[in-house]
């Protein structure tokens, strides 16, 4: 007879897996406490590609016609201001050598202040905000910098197990200097009490690697009488065909 999994059972599963692996610094594709991963990860090994001519070593180019300046401000997409704590999130996009990734596309999406996504399949009975949709885009500048103005997203429940709640997060989609560097991830906020309970966050075995998904509150980025500032730098992995020293 099917029983709903409790948080205690999920906690036990996560602890058992942590005892086996607390070192891997990347999200495991096979992480059964995240139930949806069970049927959605390959079981065979990935096949390495060493071809210096591989097309994945190059990347799409985005330009001014692709993104408008308005799109970096998620609080200005409707007639009035959204409800919630206004924040700015900014940082640098670099490769593992610390070189800026210039002119590349960063896209974000998130729940509103009440923890509700403006999506037809969303089940959480929290209010929608008519003044907030929750997506934004921008291109990185010559120093690899990006910046978004938005509101603090709320945590939300999800159906993984009984009383499953996601820590508050903003989804990020990022392009690098090569398609190999493509990244979709989630940025979390400091000191979230939900971290220990979340099998998505904990699918990254290494503690230090998990910390790299948490932004830092930066008082110098807060704007008086307007918004709180958070800083989050992003480091892309993966080989690239070229890196051009000057401009792009």
């Amino acid at each position: 007879m099917a029983q709903i999994t409790t948080q205690a059972q999920i906690d036990q599963e996560m602890a058992a897996l942590r005892a086996v692996d607390s070192k891997t610094a990347q999200a495991l594709r096979d992480y059964p406490p995240y139930r949806s991963s069970i049927l959605r990860h390959p079981k065979q090994s990935l096949i390495p590609i060493h071809d210096p001519e591989a097309i994945e070593l190059t990347t799409p180019v985005f330009g001014i016609t692709d993104v408008t300046e308005l799109e970096r401000d998620l609080t200005k997409q409707h007639v009035s201001d959204p409800i919630g704590e206004r924040i700015t999130v900014s940082g640098r996009l670099v490769d593992r050598q610390g070189r800026p990734v210039r002119g590349q596309l960063i896209e974000i999406w998130q729940a509103n202040a009440a923890g509700r996504y403006a999506h037809q399949r969303e089940q959480h009975p929290a209010p929608l905000d008519p003044n907030f949709t929750g997506y934004g885009r921008c291109l990185t500048d010559a120093d690899g910098r990006y910046a978004f103005t938005t509101i603090q997203p709320g945590p939300y429940p999800w159906g993984n197990h009984l009383n499953a709640w996601r820590p508050a997060h903003i989804h990020f989609s990022i392009f690098g200097t090569a398609f190999t560097q493509r990244l979709i991830t989630q940025m979390y906020f400091p000191n979230d009490p939900l971290f220990p309970y979340d099998p998505i966050f904990n699918a990254i075995p290494d503690e230090a690697a998990r910390q790299r998904l948490i932004c830092a509150y930066d008082h110098d980025l807060s704007q008086p009488e307007f918004s709180l500032g958070y800083r989050w730098d992003i480091v892309l992995d993966g080989p690239s065909a070229t890196w051009i020293e000057e401009g792009r």
Binding site: S36, R96, W109, G134, H171, I184, Q186, F201, R212, I234
Partner: peptide, 21 residues
């Protein structure tokens, strides 16, 4: 030369629909 540690991945989740397509 210092090599920075990469930012880990997380799932795209179910609600990307109004942002990415």
């Amino acid at each position: 030369m210092t090599v920075l540690e990469p930012t880990p991945s997380q799932t795209i989740g179910p609600f990307y629909g109004y942002a990415l397509p």
